[in-house]
Write a protein that binds this DNA or RNA. Structure first.
Lengths: 254, 254
DNA sequence: CCAGTTGTTCCTTTTTTCGGAATACTGTTC
DNA sequence: GAACAGTATTCCGAAAAAAGGAACAACTGG
């Protein structure tokens, strides 16, 4: 019966620090931009005195700010710096790696991660399944941003002006067709390709979004064309779950 | 009469919370993405045991994460959420208001704040000086994004593709001239206008940037043309200091 | 394989926080 | 204009919590 359902309660903790952390979390989760001492004390079942002490300490480090007029507290500049520091240090490859591994294991196909580089796309990472016939991509080589599932998934979610500028530069003749395809990709959330970039290969791909809502990368599941035709649908489902998780670690909120 | 605007530690604080806050700040300010217990203890002159307890507590709330492999700590998802919560709640007008008041007082002219709205710009706020002859703008009315100092300051710092798309739509004939002017605005950091949007009025304006580096608003100092010609230079200096401060509150890092 | 780190735990002393109640403010209502 | 809710803030002794030195464990690299 003594199962701890929480996330790993470390044996040695400092309860005062946990209370202070709860206060910060409350600011992050509350709908309101400012909170009062009593309000916080009620919600966290702490005494007003304790909340006051905590706020005074957090304030001394800039994590929260006090509006002298209203006597209400809000998150401070240092809180913002914490968030930006996190975002600065995001290691996309590191975050995606376990998801790619899981995707590959689940689908039995190759999972890839690619990012935009100027007007091109390059593969950053891949995980291949342990099968005799499998697909493998070349990391670091630039491909066009409008050919193949990963490219189309990325392109579809770019702001319209940017997509159009790209298409005018690189594929003016196909602008109409590609814009229509992009519309479809946005509706279903992923792009499919059968032998488009690479003859004999099939692929489904979906974008990963950053905290500003822009596509930051694309993840694909790809394999030999013959057997991939049957798998595409089921792959897409797992793919979208993986990209959703990665996006949320980049700060994307639905 | 007791004006203590510094980060004065209030009489009643919780030292443990302050130590924990110091740990978080260290993560934000350190160049490295991960820190070890000993490293933190050394830098903050705390015992390893204390740091360990603090980290365990912060970890239980998701503010920091532990890489089980390397036994090193990094900022957690909750830290990111704090930052994003701060950014979500930014009250541009509230932040700018005191800066506008100071600008107006220092220059003796009108200070304004405007933001983009689609392909237009509207004044959000203004502070006028206590002089008989002064300038006043109309809040909330849309103006073109390429006429007047505030518009040009904003436009100049938009991504090239976006600026070009706008100019093609709204001022195709002046594209060359305006792009050249934009280049100059970027170099000096502000835009000047003599009677451009409003006959008889002069203005210097500079953009305010958000944490992604995009222009989020424009601040201007403006006044009656005759006397403003002599003031423009000195106004520009104060203007840039003000916009730099506002930008930093929006998370902009140089 | 061993020395030198680093992270973690233990345990007693000491320092700190806790929390209720008193106090000081602020803006509102009658 | 004065009493009044509703705040935030301070005070205090009691009591719980953190500190920190040192032992222990788990690695790393020579």
């Amino acid at each position: 019966m003594s199962e701890d359902d929480t996330a790993q309660p470390a044996s040695q903790t400092a309860s005062t620090v946990e209370r202070a952390a709860d206060v910060l979390v409350l600011f992050a989760e509350s709908a309101r931009p400012t909170l009062g001492v009593t309000e916080i004390a009620d919600k966290l079942s702490l005494s007003k005195a304790a909340v006051h002490r905590i706020l005074a300490s957090l304030r001394s480090r800039g994590l929260v700010e006090l509006d002298e007029e209203t006597r209400r507290y809000a998150l401070g500049l240092m809180s913002m710096r914490l968030g930006l520091a996190y975002l600065d240090r995001i290691d996309l490859r590191g975050i995606a790696a376990p998801e790619l591994a899981a995707l590959s294991a689940e689908t039995g196909e190759t999972a890839t991660l690619s990012v935009r580089s100027g007007d091109s796309r390059i593969y950053l990472e891949q995980v291949t399944p342990a099968r005799e016939v499998r697909m493998s991509v070349t990391l670091g080589v630039p491909y066009p941003l409008h050919v193949g599932a990963s490219s189309k998934a990325f392109l579809a979610f770019l702001p319209e002006a940017e997509r159009d500028a790209y298409l005018t530069r690189h594929a003016p003749g196909e602008r109409g067709t590609l814009n229509e395809q992009a519309e479809h990709v946005r509706q279903v959330g992923y792009a499919v390709s059968y032998g488009e970039r690479q003859p004999g290969a099939g692929s489904v791909a979906a974008p990963v979004f950053d905290h500003t809502g822009r596509p930051a990368a694309a993840v694909s599941v790809c394999g030999p064309l013959e057997r991939f035709r049957n798998e595409a649908d089921s792959c897409a489902k797992a793919l979208l779950q993986a990209t959703t998780r990665i996006s949320s670690r980049l700060g994307h909120t639905t």
